[in-house]
Protein backbone atom coordinates (compact mmCIF):
# COMPACT_ATOMS: atom_id res chain seq x y z
CA UNK A 1 0.00 0.00 0.00
CA UNK A 2 2.84 2.34 0.67
CA UNK A 3 4.12 2.15 -2.87
CA UNK A 4 3.80 5.74 -3.94
CA UNK A 5 5.89 5.37 -7.08
CA UNK A 6 3.02 5.67 -9.52
CA UNK A 7 1.51 8.84 -8.06
CA UNK A 8 0.98 11.80 -10.29
CA UNK A 9 4.00 13.92 -9.55
CA UNK A 10 3.74 16.65 -12.11
CA UNK A 11 1.02 18.63 -10.34
CA UNK A 12 1.80 22.33 -10.44
CA UNK A 13 0.10 25.18 -8.67
CA UNK A 14 -2.03 27.35 -10.93
CA UNK A 15 -1.27 31.01 -11.36
CA UNK A 16 -3.66 33.73 -10.23
CA UNK A 17 -3.25 37.25 -8.94
CA UNK A 18 -2.66 37.72 -5.23
CA UNK A 19 -6.18 39.03 -4.79
CA UNK A 20 -7.58 36.20 -6.89
CA UNK A 21 -5.96 33.69 -4.57
CA UNK A 22 -7.16 35.55 -1.52
CA UNK A 23 -10.74 35.23 -2.78
CA UNK A 24 -10.28 31.59 -3.73
CA UNK A 25 -8.61 30.66 -0.38
CA UNK A 26 -11.40 32.45 1.48
CA UNK A 27 -14.05 30.53 -0.45
CA UNK A 28 -12.35 27.21 0.35
CA UNK A 29 -12.27 28.06 4.06
CA UNK A 30 -15.83 29.42 4.06
CA UNK A 31 -16.91 26.09 2.63
CA UNK A 32 -14.97 24.35 5.40
CA UNK A 33 -16.59 26.39 8.17
CA UNK A 34 -20.06 25.90 6.68
CA UNK A 35 -19.43 22.15 6.63
CA UNK A 36 -18.76 22.41 10.36
CA UNK A 37 -22.37 23.57 10.75
CA UNK A 38 -23.93 20.93 8.53
CA UNK A 39 -21.76 18.06 9.80
CA UNK A 40 -22.15 18.83 13.46
CA UNK A 41 -25.67 17.92 14.58
CA UNK A 42 -25.19 19.50 18.01
CA UNK A 43 -24.47 22.86 16.48
CA UNK A 44 -27.45 22.56 14.16
CA UNK A 45 -29.78 21.75 17.04
CA UNK A 46 -28.58 24.61 19.18
CA UNK A 47 -28.91 26.97 16.22
CA UNK A 48 -32.51 25.88 15.77
CA UNK A 49 -33.76 25.35 19.32
CA UNK A 50 -32.21 28.11 21.37
CA UNK A 51 -34.11 30.90 19.58
CA UNK A 52 -37.36 28.94 19.72
CA UNK A 53 -36.96 28.48 23.47
CA UNK A 54 -36.26 32.15 24.04
CA UNK A 55 -39.21 33.13 21.89
CA UNK A 56 -41.66 30.91 23.75
CA UNK A 57 -40.17 31.71 27.18
CA UNK A 58 -40.47 35.47 26.83
CA UNK A 59 -43.72 35.41 24.88
CA UNK A 60 -45.58 33.26 27.42
CA UNK A 61 -43.65 33.33 30.75
CA UNK A 62 -42.36 36.90 31.12
CA UNK A 63 -44.36 38.63 28.41
CA UNK A 64 -47.45 39.23 30.52
CA UNK A 65 -45.46 41.15 33.14
CA UNK A 66 -43.65 43.53 30.79
CA UNK A 67 -45.31 46.76 29.64
CA UNK A 68 -44.23 47.89 26.19
CA UNK A 69 -46.47 50.87 25.57
CA UNK A 70 -48.60 50.70 22.43
CA UNK A 71 -46.86 47.67 20.88
CA UNK A 72 -47.97 44.13 21.76
CA UNK A 73 -45.22 42.23 23.60
CA UNK A 74 -44.71 39.63 20.89
CA UNK A 75 -44.25 42.37 18.29
CA UNK A 76 -41.79 44.09 20.65
CA UNK A 77 -39.94 40.84 21.38
CA UNK A 78 -38.97 39.61 17.89
CA UNK A 79 -36.38 42.34 17.17
CA UNK A 80 -34.73 41.70 20.56
CA UNK A 81 -34.48 37.97 20.05
CA UNK A 82 -33.18 38.32 16.50
CA UNK A 83 -30.33 40.56 17.65
CA UNK A 84 -29.57 38.61 20.79
CA UNK A 85 -29.33 35.37 18.83
CA UNK A 86 -27.02 37.04 16.33
CA UNK A 87 -24.79 38.22 19.18
CA UNK A 88 -24.66 34.82 20.87
CA UNK A 89 -24.27 33.10 17.50
CA UNK A 90 -21.12 35.10 16.85
CA UNK A 91 -19.38 33.17 19.64
CA UNK A 92 -19.12 30.24 17.23
CA UNK A 93 -16.37 32.24 15.53
CA UNK A 94 -14.49 32.52 18.83
CA UNK A 95 -14.84 28.78 19.42
CA UNK A 96 -13.85 27.95 15.83
CA UNK A 97 -10.79 30.21 15.89
CA UNK A 98 -9.72 28.94 19.29
CA UNK A 99 -10.16 25.31 18.22
CA UNK A 100 -8.00 25.91 15.14
CA UNK A 101 -5.32 27.54 17.27
CA UNK A 102 -5.20 24.88 19.95
CA UNK A 103 -5.29 21.88 17.65
CA UNK A 104 -2.54 21.32 15.15
CA UNK A 105 -4.41 22.48 12.06
CA UNK A 106 -3.31 26.10 12.35
CA UNK A 107 0.30 25.04 11.72
CA UNK A 108 -0.76 23.31 8.54
CA UNK A 109 -2.67 26.38 7.33
CA UNK A 110 0.23 28.67 8.13
CA UNK A 111 2.73 26.47 6.32
CA UNK A 112 0.67 26.65 3.12
CA UNK A 113 1.26 29.17 0.36
CA UNK A 114 -2.00 30.98 1.17
CA UNK A 115 -3.14 34.09 2.95
CA UNK A 116 -3.74 32.63 6.39
CA UNK A 117 -6.26 35.30 7.44
CA UNK A 118 -8.67 33.56 5.07
CA UNK A 119 -9.18 31.22 8.04
CA UNK A 120 -10.83 34.10 9.94
CA UNK A 121 -12.96 35.00 6.94
CA UNK A 122 -14.11 31.39 6.75
CA UNK A 123 -15.35 31.45 10.35
CA UNK A 124 -17.00 34.87 10.22
CA UNK A 125 -18.82 34.25 6.95
CA UNK A 126 -20.04 30.87 8.21
CA UNK A 127 -21.51 32.79 11.16
CA UNK A 128 -23.58 34.82 8.68
CA UNK A 129 -24.95 31.63 7.16
CA UNK A 130 -25.67 30.08 10.55
CA UNK A 131 -27.37 33.21 11.74
CA UNK A 132 -29.50 33.55 8.64
CA UNK A 133 -30.88 30.07 9.29
CA UNK A 134 -31.59 30.93 12.95
CA UNK A 135 -33.28 34.19 11.99
CA UNK A 136 -35.60 32.54 9.50
CA UNK A 137 -36.61 29.93 12.09
CA UNK A 138 -37.26 32.64 14.69
CA UNK A 139 -39.40 34.75 12.40
CA UNK A 140 -41.48 31.72 11.46
CA UNK A 141 -41.97 30.75 15.12
CA UNK A 142 -42.75 34.39 15.90
CA UNK A 143 -45.44 34.46 13.22
CA UNK A 144 -46.92 31.31 14.73
CA UNK A 145 -47.23 32.91 18.20
CA UNK A 146 -48.74 36.19 17.11
CA UNK A 147 -45.94 38.32 15.60
CA UNK A 148 -47.53 40.68 13.03
CA UNK A 149 -44.88 42.72 11.21
CA UNK A 150 -45.92 45.83 9.28
CA UNK A 151 -42.66 46.07 7.31
CA UNK A 152 -42.71 46.71 3.55
CA UNK A 153 -40.45 44.78 1.18
CA UNK A 154 -37.82 47.53 1.29
CA UNK A 155 -37.98 47.62 5.08
CA UNK A 156 -37.45 43.83 5.21
CA UNK A 157 -34.36 44.26 3.02
CA UNK A 158 -33.11 46.90 5.44
CA UNK A 159 -33.74 44.57 8.39
CA UNK A 160 -31.71 41.84 6.67
CA UNK A 161 -28.91 44.26 5.83
CA UNK A 162 -28.63 45.71 9.35
CA UNK A 163 -28.81 42.27 10.95
CA UNK A 164 -26.12 40.77 8.69
CA UNK A 165 -23.85 43.75 9.17
CA UNK A 166 -24.26 43.51 12.95
CA UNK A 167 -23.63 39.74 12.91
CA UNK A 168 -20.50 40.18 10.84
CA UNK A 169 -19.20 42.92 13.16
CA UNK A 170 -19.79 40.80 16.27
CA UNK A 171 -18.20 37.76 14.64
CA UNK A 172 -14.99 39.72 14.10
CA UNK A 173 -15.08 40.93 17.71
CA UNK A 174 -15.62 37.35 18.67
CA UNK A 175 -12.60 36.29 16.58
CA UNK A 176 -10.50 38.62 18.76
CA UNK A 177 -11.84 36.93 21.90
CA UNK A 178 -10.97 33.55 20.38
CA UNK A 179 -7.44 34.74 19.61
CA UNK A 180 -6.89 35.97 23.17
CA UNK A 181 -8.41 33.00 24.99
CA UNK A 182 -5.89 30.56 26.43
CA UNK A 183 -8.08 27.52 25.86
CA UNK A 184 -11.26 26.46 24.12
CA UNK A 185 -13.04 26.27 27.50
CA UNK A 186 -12.00 29.82 28.31
CA UNK A 187 -13.71 31.01 25.14
CA UNK A 188 -17.07 29.90 26.48
CA UNK A 189 -17.05 32.01 29.63
CA UNK A 190 -15.19 34.96 28.13
CA UNK A 191 -17.75 35.35 25.37
CA UNK A 192 -20.55 34.86 27.88
CA UNK A 193 -19.19 37.61 30.13
CA UNK A 194 -18.79 39.85 27.13
CA UNK A 195 -22.08 39.28 25.32
CA UNK A 196 -24.48 38.69 28.22
CA UNK A 197 -24.46 42.28 29.55
CA UNK A 198 -24.55 43.76 26.06
CA UNK A 199 -27.67 41.83 25.11
CA UNK A 200 -29.58 41.95 28.42
CA UNK A 201 -28.67 45.52 29.38
CA UNK A 202 -30.43 46.61 26.23
CA UNK A 203 -33.95 47.12 24.96
CA UNK A 204 -34.11 43.47 23.80
CA UNK A 205 -36.77 42.35 26.30
CA UNK A 206 -37.81 45.42 28.28
CA UNK A 207 -38.02 49.13 27.45
CA UNK A 208 -35.00 51.00 28.83
CA UNK A 209 -37.01 53.89 30.32
CA UNK A 210 -37.63 52.15 33.68
CA UNK A 211 -33.97 51.13 34.24
CA UNK A 212 -31.87 52.92 36.92
CA UNK A 213 -30.20 55.97 35.35
CA UNK A 214 -26.58 54.74 34.92
CA UNK A 215 -27.81 51.45 33.46
CA UNK A 216 -30.33 53.30 31.28
CA UNK A 217 -27.61 55.57 29.85
CA UNK A 218 -25.46 52.54 29.05
CA UNK A 219 -28.38 50.56 27.63
CA UNK A 220 -29.67 53.35 25.41
CA UNK A 221 -26.30 54.16 23.87
CA UNK A 222 -24.65 50.80 23.36
CA UNK A 223 -24.65 49.20 19.88
CA UNK A 224 -26.99 46.31 20.62
CA UNK A 225 -29.86 48.63 21.59
CA UNK A 226 -29.35 50.77 18.50
CA UNK A 227 -29.51 47.71 16.28
CA UNK A 228 -32.58 46.35 18.11
CA UNK A 229 -34.43 49.67 17.96
CA UNK A 230 -33.64 50.09 14.26
CA UNK A 231 -34.92 46.60 13.44
CA UNK A 232 -37.95 47.01 15.70
CA UNK A 233 -38.86 50.29 14.00
CA UNK A 234 -38.58 48.68 10.59
CA UNK A 235 -40.53 45.56 11.55
CA UNK A 236 -43.43 46.95 13.59
CA UNK A 237 -43.28 50.72 13.17
CA UNK A 238 -41.94 51.91 16.55
CA UNK A 239 -40.25 55.37 16.36
CA UNK A 240 -37.10 55.18 14.22
CA UNK A 241 -35.21 58.34 15.20
CA UNK A 242 -31.52 57.94 14.35
CA UNK A 243 -31.40 54.25 15.34
CA UNK A 244 -30.76 52.88 11.84
CA UNK A 245 -27.93 55.35 11.25
CA UNK A 246 -26.33 54.60 14.62
CA UNK A 247 -26.78 50.85 14.13
CA UNK A 248 -24.92 50.99 10.82
CA UNK A 249 -22.23 53.31 12.17
CA UNK A 250 -21.62 51.12 15.23
CA UNK A 251 -21.34 47.98 13.10
CA UNK A 252 -19.04 49.61 10.55
CA UNK A 253 -16.94 51.10 13.35
CA UNK A 254 -16.54 47.70 15.01
CA UNK A 255 -15.57 46.14 11.66
CA UNK A 256 -13.03 48.85 10.81
CA UNK A 257 -11.24 48.27 14.10
CA UNK A 258 -11.69 44.55 14.64
CA UNK A 259 -10.80 43.19 11.17
CA UNK A 260 -7.26 44.61 11.11
CA UNK A 261 -6.76 43.89 14.81
CA UNK A 262 -7.93 40.27 14.56
CA UNK A 263 -5.82 39.77 11.43
CA UNK A 264 -2.79 41.22 13.18
CA UNK A 265 -3.30 38.99 16.24
CA UNK A 266 -3.80 35.96 14.03
CA UNK A 267 -0.65 36.52 12.01
CA UNK A 268 1.38 37.20 15.11
CA UNK A 269 0.11 34.13 16.91
CA UNK A 270 2.91 31.64 17.55
CA UNK A 271 5.42 33.32 15.24
CA UNK A 272 6.96 35.25 18.13
Amino acid sequence: MADTAELTRNVKPETKSKFGWFVSDSLVLIERSIKHITKNPDQLLSVAFQPIMFMLLFRYVFGGAIATGGTSYVNYLVAGILVQTAAFGSTYTAIGVSTDLHRGIIDRFKSLPMNSSAVLIGHTVADLVRNTVSSIIMILVGLAVGFRPTATFVEWLMVIGILLLFTFAFSWLSAILGLFAKSIEAVQWISFVFIFPLTFASSAYVPTKDMPTPLRIFAENQPVTQVIEAIRALLVGTPMGHHALYAVLWSLGILIISIPFATYLFRRHSTR
Partner: peptide, 8 residues
Protein backbone atom coordinates in the same frame (compact mmCIF):
# COMPACT_ATOMS: atom_id res chain seq x y z
CA UNK B 1 -9.23 21.32 0.94
CA UNK B 2 -5.44 21.15 1.28
CA UNK B 3 -5.07 20.68 -2.48
CA UNK B 4 -7.10 23.84 -3.12
CA UNK B 5 -5.10 25.77 -0.53
CA UNK B 6 -1.87 24.60 -2.19
CA UNK B 7 -3.42 26.20 -5.30
CA UNK B 8 -3.64 23.06 -7.41
Amino acid sequence: MMGHLYHL
